[in-house]
């Protein structure tokens, strides 16, 4: 499954300062869809190069990180249970406090 993953608000620093990643995630045999929960663990294994605790806490993202699936807060699509489809765009953005 092809996905576009984007990191912002400083999270890109965890994946070698690259903001946009065009990735192909291989599905388990007999599965046609991918959940956000599976994607998070894939991202942690394949993209996060340092300080994984700055990205995840337990099996979800750490507090202060917004997750957007096709420009929509994942709270509205079922959080970890959100089903992803081919060509979806998933954005991980850390909230900013500066001014």
């Amino acid at each position: 499954m092809q996905l576009t993953l984007e990191f912002g608000g400083g999270l890109e620093l965890l994946c070698e300062s690259v903001k946009i990643h065009e990735v192909t995630v291989d599905l388990e045999a007999e599965e046609t869809k991918l959940t956000m929960k599976q994607l998070l663990s894939w991202v942690r294994t394949n993209l996060i190069k340092e300080r994984p605790e700055m990205f995840m806490k337990g099996d979800t993202v750490r507090p202060g990180v917004l997750v957007l699936v096709n420009d929509c807060d994942w709270e509205l699509s079922g959080q970890l249970e959100t089903m992803l489809e081919d060509k979806d765009v998933v954005v991980f953005i850390s909230t900013l406090h500066g001014g």
Binding site: G9, M54, P63, G64, L66, T95, L96, G99
Partner: peptide, 29 residues
Amino acid sequence: AALGLEGQLTVYNYNGGPCYRCLFPTPPP
């Protein structure tokens, strides 16, 4: 909010919309 080369903007607590804590119930590390 702004930092580095990025910025964020929203309106909270307006017309039944969310507040900051609805979005970020737990503070970041």
